[in-house]
């Protein structure tokens, strides 16, 4: 066996990586080669020196580590949103934004419809109006009095989308038709009950609740941050050193 191969095997033998048959061959070589024996002794001494000269850390290492860890955790807690405010995924986030935008849009349309409408009434056809029934398709008949007589006794809005059409046609319309054709006002009674002041107050209540909810969310986040600060202080300085004044 050549010395080069023997030294390669020596390194493996020191780490118990050499197969048994090769260990025997290596031992035979070492018995005969003093240079390779010296080489092995040097490797062993080198290992001993490396183990004996391991460097020592300063005594302050642990508390410095603890301080740094607390700072890292505090920073992470400050940056992370509250779990219940975090969307569960990209789609959820998209839907949340869509929902908010839709709600705001709907609220705006309702506000315009309720407060900016001329006279606060939905225009209805007058008695003796020359326009045909198709012009009033957004209105559906309400049965009252004589059944199946073919006479229209009252009208209600067919759906909310036609509000814009109402706006276009509002000019010149004064009073809705009534069952007896007398031209009596149609503002009271069945067909306008959906636009009562009650709905407006409901919307206002919802809006107030939403504002209150946002305020509470903000407060919760504030207290969460405060809690993290207290925990960090408690870990580092102990109970007596909590900086309550600063936190407040």
């Amino acid at each position: 066996m050549r010395c080069g191969k023997a030294r390669q095997w020596l390194s493996l033998d020191l780490d118990d990586q050499l197969p048994h048959d090769r260990v025997i061959a290596l031992e035979h070589h070492l018995d005969a080669c003093s240079e390779c024996r010296a080489y092995r002794d040097d490797l062993v001494t080198g290992h001993r020196i490396l183990k004996a000269t391991e460097s020592q850390l300063s005594d302050s290492f642990e508390w410095r580590l603890r301080l740094r860890l607390n700072r890292t955790l505090e920073e992470a807690a400050r940056l992370a949103p509250a779990p219940w405010l975090e969307p569960s995924g990209r789609i959820a986030g998209w839907w949340r934004h869509f929902g908010v935008a839709g709600a705001v849009g709907l609220a705006a349309v309702l506000t315009v419809a309720l407060f900016a409408w001329p006279g606060g009434e939905i225009p209805l056809p007058l008695a003796g109006d020359s326009r045909t029934e198709s012009d009033f398709e957004y209105l559906v008949p309400v049965a009252s009095g004589e059944q199946n007589s073919g006479r229209v006794t009252g009208l209600i809005p067919s759906d909310r989308r036609s509000l814009s059409r109402h706006a276009d046609r509002s000019a010149g319309w004064q009073r809705p038709v009534t069952g007896d054709g007398t031209g009596r006002t149609g503002t009271s009674g069945q067909f306008l009950s959906g636009w009562s002041g009650r709905s407006v107050s409901d919307l206002q209540t919802i809006n107030a609740l939403r504002i209150q909810n946002e305020r509470l969310d903000t407060m919760v986040r504030h207290y969460q941050r405060q809690l993290q600060t207290f925990k960090a202080q408690l870990d580092t300085a102990g109970e007596d050193h909590l900086d309550l004044e600063r936190a407040q």
């Binding site: 030294r7 493996l12 490797l43």
Partner: peptide, 18 residues
């Protein structure tokens, strides 16, 4: 395996005077 072997050899050369 080979890198450990080479490093050992190198280290031995370096500390040989010591």
């Amino acid at each position: 395996r080979s890198r450990i072997n080479r490093a050992r050899n190198k280290f031995r050369q370096l500390i040989k005077p010591m």
